[in-house]
Design a protein around this nucleic acid. Structure first.
Length: 569
DNA sequence: GGACAGACTTGCAGTCAGAAAA
DNA sequence: TTTTCTGACTGCAAGTCTGTCC
């Protein structure tokens, strides 16, 4: 109890480091929890809500009715207009139908879900219009469930669980042009679920009349429960919240690896540059790929399974994804990138490169079709094996963490001035954050209400300016006419306050405009060493709450506790 | 060395709840 | 007090990377 938080963290991190090196992959000693929380069972539609086929009322059985509601709920979403989505949905739906239903329902275009849709729209409306008391009661029920299922005991500490709910059934919504969009995501039964906890701990009871698929005691993994989803056949896990010690330590380790790269990066860069002139084609490809990963923060680019959206990363780039320009916009040796990356987010960039890189790319593209691999001699496994020889723990993605955190540190150093107000410092921070987001290509759809809220701000600024004019005149009058000290002082104060408010609004607007299609959250949460931020806040007297919200402060508790103002990444 | 499974991190979007405006 | 708006939070898909098997 007398151990200061910071020392507690340091100590446990050091212990972890020692353990980590000699470890057999053990992640915990004891783990006890209450199992996952299942979604509520399907509630049948009331009899007055009717599904029509070919204009005729048709009573669906419970199972097929439930699936129909999944589609009906999504009716005003763009998804349901897509052919692939419709086809997948209809196939899967028919598979779950009874023989009799299948005999009748043969075409999706003849299905009329509109009453079902209206029913759910109405229900949502009703929920919105609930009384305060009803809402409060619902909230309390929820809190009870969180209390019961939302926590576990790991090595004796009560820890928050990240996702303690089993995913409900529904229609799969892939991102981009996913060939499986619209397929039925089936309801998960206790019989599908594997429970992981420690030997001798209280094993969570399965729901009445059910059994778990399996109960295991594997302390080399961190998950509490798992099941296999039916779309891709991949496992899904119930795991701890990012605020947990286990996740925090892992996060810290990640940033330490990135800081290690800082010490080695010069020699690694020299190495890959010399690879550009290697006699071996494989080495040249490795050198150029690594250069892209380092300079452009591209992802590694693993091979993907079929039946997924066509997206690529560095190693999986194809000839069609780049265009070479000997000269473009007054620059020499320009590579134009245009491809869909993770989550089908477009990466578009025109980058001047070294002449040798350019020549190599030309060579890699020779005698290839557009859909051939650009780097046909290498893959991510090979790349990572190589990187690991340069530095323990080094993999392709470490470069993203390293470059992101380095950029933040550099930008903060450049942009923060001591005479700035707190608001200006926050803007500077956001700009540094934004530089990182742009580097990592973290995009978002422009918010639907963007134009509107922008206009609103404009108006506020206009009003404020008018107020300032008025205040100036009044001040002048006060000075000329009355020469009453207290009145003049008062008017001066008013003016000053107004001017400060205007400045604040203008800063707000700049920030908003620049953030229109850039997402800052991802880099803040996953790429920026929180110690940089914590140190900066301490050094420049910016309250940490201005930069990190509650969740973020919880996740980065380790950094907040252990970082001094002189920390440098 | 390639295929595959498994575990864990990263990423966007949609929902929700509380703050701000009316 | 009611309505509107925004940022926090959740959900879950989609990556990365490691280990195992043949």
């Amino acid at each position: 109890p007398f151990l200061h938080k910071r020392w507690y963290w340091l100590l446990s991190l050091i212990i972890m480091r020692i353990k980590g090196k000699s470890s057999d992959g053990q992640k915990w000693t004891t783990l006890e929890h209450n199992g996952p929380l299942f979604p509520p069972e399907y509630e049948p539609l009331p009899n007055n809500v009717v599904f029509y086929y070919s204009g005729e009322a048709f009573k669906l059985g419970l199972a097929s009715e439930e699936i129909a509601t999944f589609y009906a709920k999504m009716l005003d979403h763009e998804y349901t207009t897509k052919e692939v989505f419709q086809k997948n949905f209809f196939n899967d739906w028919r598979e779950e139908m009874t023989e009799d239903e299948r005999k009748v329902i043969k075409k999706l275009s003849k299905c009329n879900f509109s009453e079902l849709h209206a029913y759910f729209v109405n229900k949502a409306e009703e929920k919105k219009n609930m009384t305060k008391e009803e809402k409060q009661a619902l909230k309390e029920d929820n809190a009870k469930l969180t209390e019961q299922y939302g926590f576990c005991f790991l090595d004796g500490h009560r820890e928050k669980i990240g996702n303690f709910r089993v995913e409900p059934p529904g229609l799969f919504r892939g991102r981009g042009e996913h060939p499986k969009m619209g397929k039925l995501k089936k309801r998960i039964q206790p019989e599908d679920i594997t429970i992981n906890c420690s030997k001798g701990s209280r094993i969570p009871g399965p729901p009445q009349g059910h059994k778990w698929r399996k109960v295991q005691h594997d302390n080399t993994v961190t998950w509490l429960a798992s099941w296999v989803e039916n779309i891709q056949g991949h496992p899904k896990y119930i795991m701890l919240n990012p605020s947990s010690k286990l996740k925090g330590e892992k996060d810290w380790q990640k940033y330490e690896t990135a800081r290690n790269l800082k010490l080695r990066v010069d020699s690694i860069r020299r190495q890959y540059q010399s690879d550009w002139s290697s006699h071996e084609m494989r080495n040249r490809q490795r050198g150029v790929a690594l250069y892209f990963i380092d300079k452009l923060a591209l992802r590694a680019g693993n091979e993907k399974e079929d039946d997924t959206a066509d997206t690529v990363g560095c190693c999986s780039l194809r000839v069609e994804h780049i265009t070479l320009h000997k000269e473009l916009d007054g620059k020499e040796w320009v590579v134009e990138f245009d491809f869909l990356g993770k989550d089908s987010i477009r990466y578009y960039n025109k980058v001047p490169v070294e002449k040798r890189v350019f020549k190599n790319l030309k060579l890699f593209m020779e005698n290839k079709d557009p859909d051939d691999d650009l780097f046909d001699r290498i893959n991510t496994t090979y790349l990572n094996k190589n990187l690991n020889e340069s530095m323990a723990g080094l993999t392709a993605k470490v470069f993203r963490t390293f470059n992101a955190s380095t950029t933040l540190q550099d930008q903060l150093n450049i942009m923060t001035k001591e005479d700035m107000t707190v608001e200006e410092k926050i803007l500077a921070y956001n700009r540094a954050n934004r530089a990182v987001a742009i580097l990592c290509n973290h995009q978002r759809a422009a918010p639907k209400t963007f134009e509107k809220s922008m206009q609103l701000l404009q108006e506020k600024i206009k009003k404020k300016k008018e107020q300032i004019e008025l205040a100036k005149r009044e001040l002048k009058e006060a000075k000329n006419a009355h020469r009453e000290r207290p009145l003049v002082a008062k008017k001066e104060k008013v003016l000053k306050r107004l001017q400060e408010q205007l400045k604040k609004l203008q800063l707000q607007m700049t920030d908003k405009e620049e953030n229109k299609v850039i997402a800052l959250g991802t880099s803040k949460l996953n790429y920026l060493d929180p110690r940089i931020t914590v140190a900066w806040c301490k050094k420049h007297k910016v309250p940490i709450e201005k930069i990190y919200n509650k969740t973020q402060r919880d996740k980065f508790a380790w950094a907040i506790d252990m970082t001094d103002e002189d920390f440098e990444f």
